[in-house]
Design a protein around this nucleic acid. Structure first.
Lengths: 209, 209
DNA sequence: AAACAAATCGAACGGTCGTATAGATTGTTC
DNA sequence: GAACAATCTATACGACCGTTCGATTTGTTT
């Protein structure tokens, strides 16, 4: 970083590489990522890309971290703008579906694609993806717990159970919409999410009417 | 096929190749499949493998079809052994979870892995995977409809909605168990599936108690 | 046993992959 | 503006990829 706030030359290139890398990986996977194609896309030399990371695995790890930042901006941050509790839980679901349907990544949810790719391939890359997933489930669970403490959601419920179910519906929508070219998939998932929330909510909520 | 029931030499090789190919693809994906590695694993020549299919894409398509057969044997066929309706629906859920947890493919559900890999890559391979997914959802929906006609499940329900939800929970278990090394994932999914069935069932069922 | 077709092998092709190294270019600091 | 470190380019390497082709082995038919 320069003394004013702008990025230095190297960091600007690095950021551009990681942005494109996450875009590509959301379609082609983290293995489908190729340093040569990445360099060609950005019109820089292969070694110029490579030098920033030192190995393909380090590039993959950095790409995951960059994708986490973009996901956080797109889904989690907007939810923090609404009141904690059931309100925020509803927005979290809605933002995720919108993120999947027409969000920042051309291949749908970046994490769904790379998680499925690496779920049976042990190593540092899988661990990083698993950590990102834990972050996301933790965000869900924290909001659910908060809604319970506020008396807006049935206190007998295990937050991890509900988080698992809401996340499952989101993933299914993400997959089904693209694989089967079904534009109603996200609406179906939203309806199922809201029906589930209606069943556990202890107070009325306008979005769940 | 020979005049007695055994497979001819070529068909035996072909079947062995496709079996191993589906195993590999359930871990590495259909792109991660390599004809060279496949040949080395089976101790035959690369050209010997290649000649059966003519192109990698044809090998991928044949691998998907072979995986459909193994899936059908493992999940759908056993469900046909129990009475149609809610009974069969329960077994279908259970068999799928068991198929994912410790089924025939070393990487978990073959179709989950390749569907996520190809959901944003248009082409014949994606179309074949999408067709396999439709087959599976159709099986779910047919059993649900049948249960409705028997008065065992709420008739006001859209079978496609319930199929979507049950499938979503299965996929989430498949992913979570492997990615996060969580052996409770399938139990969590089963509990959620059965809770959902309990909510829509109009008759008691022992498995849902 | 001779003839024939099916199946498989061995070797080679152009291409892309990740990685390494050396030199040119850039931006910053004295 | 000279020195210097950071950044990027150009080129090359060996490995593996999908694919092709001719020779060879195998199993069946006459």
């Amino acid at each position: 970083m320069t003394t004013d706030g702008r990025l230095a030359r190297g960091e600007r290139t690095r950021a551009a590489v990681l942005h494109r890398a996450a875009d590509i990986a959301s379609v082609e996977g983290l293995d489908g990522l190729s340093i040569g194609q990445l360099a060609a896309d950005l019109q820089v030399s292969k070694a110029g890309v490579f030098a920033h990371f030192g190995s393909k695995e380090q590039l993959q790890l950095a790409t995951i971290r960059a994708a986490v930042d973009r996901f956080t901006d797109e889904v989690v941050a907007p939810a923090l703008d609404v009141p904690d509790g059931l309100d925020r839980l509803v927005v979290l679901c809605e933002r995720w579906l919108e993120y999947s349907r027409s969000g920042p990544f051309p291949g749908g949810c970046f994490f769904f694609n790379v998680a499925a790719e690496y779920d049976a391939k042990p190593g540092r890359v899988r661990d990083e993806i698993a950590a990102a997933r834990r972050l996301w489930l933790d965000a869900y669970e924290a909001v659910i717990s908060s809604a319970q403490r506020r008396g807006e959601v049935d206190a007998g419920l295990d937050p991890a159970d509900l988080a698992f179910e809401l996340d499952a519906l989101g993933m299914a929508a993400n997959l089904h919409a693209r694989l089967c070219d079904d534009p109603t998939a996200h609406d179906r998932a939203r309806a199922a999410m809201f029906a589930r929330l209606r069943a556990v909510a202890t107070v009325p909520h306008p979005a769940l009417a």
